[in-house]
Nucleic acid binder design. Structure first.
Length: 564
RNA sequence: GUGCCCAUAGCUCAGCUGGAUAGAGCAACGCCCUUCUAAGGCGUAGGCCUUGGGUUCGAAUCCCCAUGGGCACACCA
C-alpha cells in the first residue's frame, strides 16, 4: 500500500508550505493563507522530476512578481531528510524539484515487496460502493453498447477495488414492464406462426423481430408441442416468457463470463414490484408532496425535478412506469442495502435521465452526490473501412459474442478501454485482429512475453531473480533504466487518478507507456552476459516491469501471456 | 424548437482542478539483428488545438456567439 509518488508530493508540499510560512515570518512575504498546493510532473525532463506553480498562484496576494516569489520560497526552503536534491526557479515562475535517484531505488523495493498487490492503495477505506452496469435488456442478446459498458464498468469496479473500496458489481434484470409484455406477444405470435403458418396471425408492429424469438419457440414446440394453441393468451404468454427469459439470461451470463465479467448480484426488477419497494417509494413521494394526479395517472411534479413537464409515475391503467421503479431501485440500493456510493453506467442515449434521477433522489431524501452516472458514447464497428453492422459468421447484427469470437476478449477489452468514456468509439475490426505492431494489445502482451522468456532463459542457466537486499540497485544508472523505473513508480498514482475521476481509460495508455519504456530499455541495456552484479540489478528491474504489466492487465482482465 | 455531449497531426486519440517549446500510437520516410523474442529499437517529417469574441500575468483547457457532427426530449426502458 505504499505510493512513492504520493510520499514525494507530500514532502514537497511540506517543504514549500514550510518555506512560505518562514518567509511570512521573515516578512519577505506578506501574510497569506495557503493550505494546499499543486504538485505536477513536468512534461519536459529538463524541468526536473516534479514542479509546482504555487509562486504564480500567490503572486496576487503576495504583491510581487511570480519569479520573485519563487526565489523567496527557494531561499527559505529546507529540504533536509527528503528526496529533494535540487530546487530551481524556471520559466514564468515555476519551482522545479530534482530528486535524489534514491527514490527510484525505493520504488523498486516497494514493487518487489508488494508484488501482485502493487498498485493497491487505500483511498476507499472500505466504503461500500455498487457499480451497476450492463443491465442489458434480457429479451435479446448483448449488443455493442453492453460490450463497451461492460468493459468500462468492470474496469471501474476493479479500479475501485484496487483503490480500497468494498465493491459490488450488480446487473439489473429488466424483467418487468413493457419490454417483457412485448417479449411475450412476440413469442406468442411466433409460436402460432410456427405451427399454423406465417399468415396465421400478424406479428405485432412493435414486437422483437430478431430470429432468436422464433428459435425460442422452435425449441419450445419440440418439448411442449402445440398444446398452448388453445390456452388463454395471457396465461400462455407468461409460460413463453418464463421459458425464454431464463434461456436469454443464461446466454447473457455465459457471454459475460467469457468476456471476463462476473457479477456479484443479479437483481430482478420484478422484486421491486412484488415487494413493497415501488409502493413505498410512491407513497413517500406522495407524502413529500411531490406528486399530482391528472388524467387518471399519478405524476411526479416537474417542479421537483427542475423540469417544465411532469413525469408519469403510475399510468392510468395502474401500472407504475420504469421511472417509478427506478426511483424505488435507487432507494433500495441506498436505504435497504446500505450502499454509500453508487455508480451507474448508462449509454449516452440515457443522458436525459440523469438529472431526473438525481432530482428524484433528493425528493426521497437521499443526497444525489452519492450517485454517479458514467455515460459512455456508443460504438461504431468498422470493417474494410466501412461501418459493419452484420456478423461475418452469423449474418445477424453483431453481438458481444460475435465480437469476442472474431477478435478475441483481450483486444475487445483493451480497445473499449483505450478511450475516454465521453468520446465516440470507432472500433476497427481489422486492426483488432492484426497480430502486429499496429495493434497496441499485442505491443503490451509482447513486452510481457519477452520478459517471461528472458527470465526463463536465464533461469535455465541458473541465474535467478535475486532479492533486493542481494543486489546493488545503484548500478541502474542509465537513462533508459531511470525512465523505466519512473514509469513503474507512477502506477499507484494512475490507480488513484482513475478511481477519483472514474475515467480508467488512462490505464491502457499507461501500460502502453510501460511497455514502450521496457522495449527501449531492452534495446539499450543487456541483462544476460553482463557483469554479475549488474545482471542482478537489471533482473530485479525486469521482474518489476513484469509485475506491473501483469497487474495492469489483470485489472483490465486481459491475459498476460508467458510467450507469443 | 428545447436540452446534453463532442470538435486537437493524413488517421485514431491523450492533454489532470488554466501554466513552460501542445503530446502519443498508426500511416510515411531513413537507419539498427554473429549477442536475452525485429510482434522490437533509434531518428526525420507532420499543428492557425473548427471560426470569432471575452476573462487572465498566461487559454487547447474557463465564459459567450457561430459552424459542423452525435444524442435525448413517450402513460418506452
Amino acid at each position: 500500500m505504499k505510493n512513492i509518488t504520493e510520499k514525494i508530493r507530500q514532502q514537497i508540499k511540506d517543504v514549500v508550505l514550510g518555506s512560505i510560512h518562514k518567509s511570512i515570518e521573515n516578512e519577505e512575504l506578506p501574510s497569506l493563507d495557503i493550505t494546499d498546493i499543486l504538485i505536477e510532473i513536468p512534461r519536459e525532463k529538463g524541468y526536473g522530476d516534479f514542479s509546482t506553480n504555487v509562486a504564480m498562484q500567490i503572486t496576487k496576494v503576495a504583491k510581487k512578481a511570480p519569479r520573485q516569489v519563487a526565489e523567496i520560497i527557494i531561499r527559505n526552503i529546507d529540504v533536509k531528510d527528503t528526496y529533494i536534491k535540487k530546487v530551481t526557479c524556471a520559466g514564468p515562475g515555476f519551482i522545479n524539484f530534482t530528486l535524489d535517484t534514491k527514490y527510484l531505488y525505493d520504488a523498486i523495493e516497494i514493487i518487489k515487496e508488494e508484488k501482485e498487490q502493487y498498485g493497491h492503495i487505500n483511498i476507499g477505506n472500505g466504503k461500500k460502493v455498487m457499480v451497476e452496469f450492463v443491465s442489458a435488456n434480457p429479451t435479446g442478446p448483448l449488443h455493442m453498447g453492453n460490450a463497451r459498458g461492460g468493459a468500462l464498468g468492470d474496469l471501474i469496479a476493479s479500479v475501485l477495488d484496487a483503490a480500497g473500496y468494498d465493491v459490488t458489481r450488480e446487473f439489473l434484470i429488466n424483467d418487468a414492464g413493457n419490454q417483457i409484455v412485448k417479449f411475450g406477444t412476440s413469442l406468442e405470435a411466433r409460436y402460432i406462426q410456427l405451427i399454423k403458418g406465417a399468415d396465421a396471425v400478424p406479428f405485432p408492429q412493435d414486437g422483437y423481430q430478431g430470429e432468436d424469438i422464433a428459435e425460442h419457440m422452435k425449441d419450445f414446440i419440440e418439448i411442449h408441442g402445440d398444446k398452448y394453441l388453445d390456452v388463454d393468451s395471457e396465461e400462455r404468454r407468461k409460460v413463453f416468457v418464463d421459458f425464454a427469459l431464463p434461456r436469454n439470461l443464461g446466454k447473457i451470463k455465459e457471454g459475460l463470463e467469457s468476456y471476463g465479467i462476473h457479477f456479484d448480484v443479479w437483481f430482478s426488477e420484478q422484486t421491486l414490484h412484488k415487494g413493497n419497494d415501488v409502493a413505498e417509494t410512491i407513497q413517500l413521494l406522495k407524502d413529500n408532496d411531490c406528486t399530482i394526479e391528472n388524467e387518471g395517472a399519478l405524476w411526479l411534479k416537474g417542479s421537483v425535478i427542475g423540469s417544465e413537464k411532469d413525469e408519469v409515475l403510475v399510468r392510468n391503467n395502474g401500472i407504475p412506469t420504469y421511472f417509478a421503479a427506478d426511483i424505488a431501485y435507487h432507494r433500495n440500493k441506498f436505504e435497504k442495502r446500505g450502499f454509500e456510493w453508487v455508480i451507474n453506467l448508462w449509454g449516452a442515449d440515457h443522458h436525459g435521465h440523469v438529472a431526473r434521477m438525481k432530482a428524484a433522489m433528493t425528493a426521497i431524501g437521499i443526497s444525489p452526490d452519492k450517485l454517479d452516472v458514467v455515460l459512455f458514447q456508443l460504438v461504431r464497428l468498422y470493417r474494410n473501412g466501412e461501418i459493419a453492422r452484420m456478423s461475418k459468421r452469423t449474418g445477424k447484427s453483431i453481438s458481444l459474442m460475435d465480437l469476442v469470437d472474431e477478435v478475441g476478449k483481450d483486444a475487445v477489452r483493451f480497445f473499449f478501454n483505450n478511450k475516454t468514456s465521453g468520446s465516440h468509439l470507432d472500433f476497427d475490426l481489422d486492426l483488432a485482429v492484426k497480430q502486429s505492431n499496429e495493434n497496441p494489445v499485442f505491443y503490451v502482451q509482447y513486452a510481457h512475453a519477452r520478459i517471461c522468456s528472458m527470465l526463463k532463459l536465464l533461469e535455465s542457466e541458473g541465474v535467478h531473480v535475486p532479492s533486493v537486499k542481494d543486489a546493488n540497485l545503484e548500478l541502474l544508472d542509465k537513462e533508459e533504466e531511470f525512465e523505466l523505473i519512473k514509469k513503474l513508480s507512477e502506477y499507484p498514482d494512475e490507480v488513484r487518478i482513475s478511481a477519483e475521476t472514474l475515467e480508467p481509460s488512462r490505464l491502457t495508455r499507461y501500460v502502453l507507456e510501460v511497455a514502450a519504456a521496457f522495449h527501449s530499455f531492452y534495446n539499450a541495456c543487456r541483462v544476460r552476459g553482463e557483469e554479475e552484479q549488474l545482471v542482478k540489478a537489471r533482473l530485479i528491474l525486469v521482474d518489476c516491469t513484469r509485475i506491473v504489466i501483469k497487474n495492469v492487465l489483470d485489472l483490465l482482465s486481459i491475459s498476460a501471456p508467458d510467450r507469443m
